[in-house]
Design a binder for these strands. Structure first.
Lengths: 220, 220
DNA sequence: ATTACTATACCTCGAGTAA
DNA sequence: TTTACTCGAGGTATAGTAA
């Protein structure tokens, strides 16, 4: 990844705030970046080509929206620096329990995953996932966690289909150990899937709609 | 600042760990950076020229030590990203109270500072500083705070001499509001000076050698 | 106003190689 | 082994300018 693009994304995010959308001319952006209007224009074109941004040319200033890969890039650099500078950190995620679709159970129960969970996480998870819909105000924190490395669980194939890799982060719910699971290839979603060797829903007496706090540690 | 240098510093910090010193050949560094040995060598020379690193050429691998400006650069980027991504953060600093040299009182009492403290911090500080020697394990946190922006108090001149600018960060000690004061131009030190509208030493019954926890918020 | 193409000047990289 | 110089190829930035 080129630094010019990183820096352009950084400035665009700074200007766009939480909406990730900004109306800015190539000349104005050039000034922010300390480059010429032509160069700024080239950067914008390149970012659009590489799907880091979406833009619409208008009569006046163009409208630029940052796409997921841009946010991933920034959060990933943030995580790298935190890791290198040994700034250990814990995060709180808050959300509410969603009714599971039963899908989680199917995936988790696959022997290809189960063996790795035991090996790498040290648990034999209860065959099912607890799904938490994270509140919007914790979106930043969720992105931050998602873009960290976590513990890698490899994908595999059986006769019928392919199962993708996932990454896991250790967390605590009401003092009970649990793991957050993210598919390695998937779009951003505000739903977090949680596994544990305990049957969390029963042990913690949880019901759909209950508000939940998850404490997550990023290991360095 | 050039990205190549930023990235080189980042990798050097990653490899050197908390000691900030690493023995590495230009060829090995080249591999880490994904560039040629010649380019890596050029980067090292440039970093040394610009006083970002200190190095000694040895028979075998050269010894490279990261200097303060390198750490400043990394912490500053970290703070920028945190700020842009709206990752609000609070930090704990722990240290012990040092006997003041009376110097603080002289500086703080200057009208040029006092007027700005009232204007920008909203307090008329007790004329003296509480000096805390931060424990080494909080060095990372201290660097992080120091490289953030804070509230700027401008420097000034009187007939005899020049007083430099300082920057302030709001904090809490045992629930009491206080401000951390850093000279804007100074070398890194593990002593933090604190001011408050209260006479902290008396109000909180503090003595030299007492251990203290300071809670600091970085505003974004 | 804008954006962005073309042409050129400039810079940066790495192969070859000396010390 | 190293480090780092020279130099040519290729890449990058900007001035000029069209649309």
């Amino acid at each position: 990844m080129d630094y010019n693009l990183y820096n352009t994304i950084k400035i665009l995010k700074k200007l766009s705030g939480s909406g990730n959308t900004v109306y800015i001319s190539s000349g104005e952006l050039a000034e922010e970046l300390g480059v010429s209007q032509q160069t700024s224009s080239r950067f914008i074109i390149e970012l659009a080509d590489k799907k880091y941004i979406e833009r619409t040319l208008q009569n006046r200033k163009q409208k630029i929206t940052l796409l997921e890969p841009s946010l991933d890039l920034l959060y990933s650099e943030l995580n790298q620096l935190n890791s290198i500078l040994e700034m250990r950190q814990e995060f709180n995620l808050k959300g509410e329990i969603q009714s599971g679709l039963g899908e989680g159970k199917y995936y988790i129960s696959q022997e290809g995953y189960m063996a790795q969970f035991l090996d790498k996480l040290g648990i034999s998870p209860y065959p099912g996932t607890l799904n938490i819909k994270i509140f919007p105000e914790y979106e930043n924190v969720l992105r931050r966690i998602r873009s960290a490395d976590g513990i890698h669980i490899g994908g595999f194939k059986d006769k019928e289909r392919t199962f993708g890799g996932v990454k896991c982060f250790s967390g605590r719910i009401d003092g009970t150990g649990a793991w957050l699971i993210f598919p390695e290839r998937s779009n951003y979603t505000d739903i977090v899937e949680i596994i544990s060797d305990k049957f969390l829903r029963k042990d913690l007496k949880l019901q759909d709609g209950d508000e939940l706090n998850i404490r997550v540690a990023l290991d360095h």
